[in-house]
Design a protein around this nucleic acid. Sequence first.
DNA 1: ATGGTCGACTCTCGA
Length: 265
Amino acid sequence: MRIATFNVNSVRSRLTILERWLSKLDKPVDVLFLQETKAVDADFPEDAIDELGYKSYFRGEKSYNGVAALVRKDAKIDGVSASFGFGDGEEPDFLTRALYLKTPSFSVLNTYVPQGKDITHADYDVKKRFLARARAFFERAVKPGFPFVWLGDMNVAQTEIDVTHPENKKNHVCFHSEIRESFARVADFGLTDIMRKFHPEEGVYTFFDYRVKDAVARGIGWRIDLMMANEAASDAATDCFVDTEPRLWDRPSDHTPLVADFALS
DNA sequence: ATGGTCGACTCTCGA
């Protein structure tokens, strides 16, 4: 079973990249989780994605946010259900930032964690609240021992090797000690960063700022797109990697897809 | 370098 996560930065403008990426992989992605689809539900390209062989679960809003799960029809995954937000009467914004997909053999929470703007901005508090509510959601929704993965655009770099020039990022909303502690409290649910299980090396990034000149070529990036697996899912993981190829194509997203394989039926 | 470049959408905001 193969799952993937990708901050697509507009699902409509990135349809060509999605199709090209899905068709070039050696093994098909069974469930693809997207963030920043940037389309209201009426504009989500459900039919085009159906033609690629995937059923879509999605919720978006105008211009910003938006999450989706694309389930490969030929994978014959029965009993799929999707819900949005944390179901705790949250900010409406959270409904287009969190998608929980449940199947009989595994479940996944796909999040687009608020970026936070600045450590003095009110949105930074929203970011911390979002993370706290994700942890509370795990406590309610995930049964111990059941394979579970928290994935998506986390907007948090966890360690010094997950960002270029960490010494200059101490007050950045994605690297400040406070937000890394907030993230660690969520991960303390028993989740491990499974890409690191297979790729401990430095210099692996999933985000390159469009505003930094030649960021990809110069290797100036962030590793903020993650898959965090509980013990049952981590034990079943056989690989997890960042696929750098789509960065080289026309009109790439600023994020890079992350793929994982699991020995799960 | 308080810049830079994208995407969605009214022109400026969010990243």
